[in-house]
């Protein structure tokens, strides 16, 4: 079972910036235990572009699809047996990243 694990940061109350060594160590462990599928940190939301080509002409707009105080700072994809395992790892991930984590199953 695969889960999208989102790291959520808060513009008003950002997590600490010195987490990279801890995150690397955590990633190594996810790989060793066979849970790791993908991981990536994201650039700032101001670097995002939204494309809407549902109409006659493609419209590009600058910025993320939704402006909010909280935003997606990075993602993982984990392969784990069930939600309990995902939640246990996510509980650790929240400490490691010093940020909130959302766990959402793939269909």
């Amino acid at each position: 079972m695969q889960y999208l694990v989102s790291v959520i940061d808060d513009k008003d109350n950002p997590g600490s910036t010195d987490r990279q060594p801890a995150i690397s160590a955590f990633n190594d462990r996810l790989i060793a235990e066979g849970y790791w599928v993908f991981a990536g940190g994201l650039a700032d939301t101001t670097a995002a572009t939204v494309i809407d080509n549902r109409g006659e002409q493609a419209v590009f707009s600058d910025g993320p699809f939704v402006e909010s105080k909280e935003y997606l700072a990075g993602v993982w994809v984990w392969e784990v047996p069930d939600l309990d395992v995902a939640l246990k790892l996510a509980t650790e991930a929240s400490k490691v990243c010093d940020r909130k984590i959302e766990v959402r199953p793939f269909q």
Partner: peptide
């Protein structure tokens, strides 16, 4: 069902 919440008694630790 979708999030795969398991049908079991939690481990001793939990």
């Amino acid at each position: 069902k979708a999030a795969r919440i398991p049908y079991r008694v939690p481990s001793a630790e939990d």
